[in-house]
Simulated assay, not measured.
Amino acid sequence: MCYVTVHNMSFIEFLFILLILYYFVYVLLWIILDCNVALWYKSRFGNSISTMRGQVVWITGASSGIGRALAISLARHGVRLVLSARRLEQLEQVQTECLAAARGLLAQKDVLILQMDMLQLDKHQAHLYTVLNHFERLDVLVNNAGRSQRANWVDIDIQVDRDLFELDVFAVVHLSRLVVRYFLEQNGGRGHIAATSSIAGFSPVPFSATYCAAKHALNAYFTSLKLEQRKLDVTIFAPGPIATDFLMEAFTGNKGEKVGDSTANQKRLTAERCGELFAVAIANKMDLTWCGLVMPMFTEPIDL
């Protein structure tokens, strides 16, 4: 009896050591890599972005930052694109960059510019019709449009909370519902919805309370969607600090104010690398992924 007890304890201890080693290696890889382990693996051994060639991907907030970088990454592999944002001139520049990156895989008609303001909900259906009339299909909607925020919790005007939620949550959900209905009616429920969330949507950070809350809400909306629509692919992509001009348009605590700052030259993950990883996550239909350099995540406020 004593021999059996000692033997069982030794086996349990062995399993415990293996568990410790597993988490040690996982944390070590997390520190070394610029994304979660599963995404890194897919970027090396998963489906190539080229498997999406010919598909139609609609990217909101495509005029700069992660949206622009994602568009170029997809164009490089022959993915047809719908580029949406408010700023027409910037969209035209991104279109030119996408066609150059495609190196003949795409013609100008394969990269549609669709100027839109996400807050104009009454125009979302018309924008969807424009996409479908042009391409006769839509395979992936990438909800990337949104704004960040910097303010002390106690100083935030309630109207700022409302305005940020209108853009980062309700406008995104409204457009996504229209697209999901299209998938249900035309594709038997098959389709792909992706969203740019944030590390801050899982682990709140100081001085960005409304932004953190909005991303938490967005995560809950899309996780619930996945639970209800099993055939639908839903990708939540959560970057940490990224080198972009994202803070230029970020909310403060006062209505109408903008932070007006840039992190484009700081030591952070580049928008180009972020866009490439986002494209990998979409090509492999991954549910939840994150990216970012570890040190900025611990030392700086989260931007995306």
Rank of each mutant, 00 (worst) to 15 (best):
V4Q: 11
I113Q: 07
D303I: 07
S73A: 15
L88H: 00
D34K: 12
F202Y: 15
G201D: 10
L21T: 15
L119Q: 07
T5K: 10
G54A: 04
R87N: 12
F222W: 10
S148Y: 06
S148D: 13
A101Q: 02
D303W: 00
V131D: 05
V140D: 00
A238E: 03
K285S: 14
N254A: 15
A100R: 06
F207Q: 09
I199Q: 02
L19P: 01
T299F: 14
A238Q: 09
Q159T: 07
L112P: 01
A102R: 03
I282N: 01
F183H: 01
S84G: 03
G260R: 00
T252C: 14
L218G: 04
Y22K: 10
H174C: 10
Y211D: 04
L304E: 00
L39R: 06
T60Q: 12
G256C: 07
K285P: 09
A250E: 08
F246T: 00
I59L: 11
L29D: 06
A281S: 06
C98V: 05
S198W: 02
I282K: 00
V154E: 15
I193L: 14
P241N: 10
S176A: 15
N254S: 12
L105P: 04
I158G: 01
L288D: 03
Y182Q: 08
D233M: 12
H7G: 10
V79R: 01
R273C: 12
A107T: 13
M295D: 05
M297N: 03
R273Y: 14
R273W: 11
R147M: 10
D303S: 07
A200K: 00
I158M: 03
S148W: 02
A238F: 02
L21N: 04
T263H: 06
D168V: 14
H216G: 12
M295C: 08
G54W: 00
H124V: 13
L99W: 03
F45W: 04
T263I: 12
L106W: 08
G191C: 02
A217E: 09
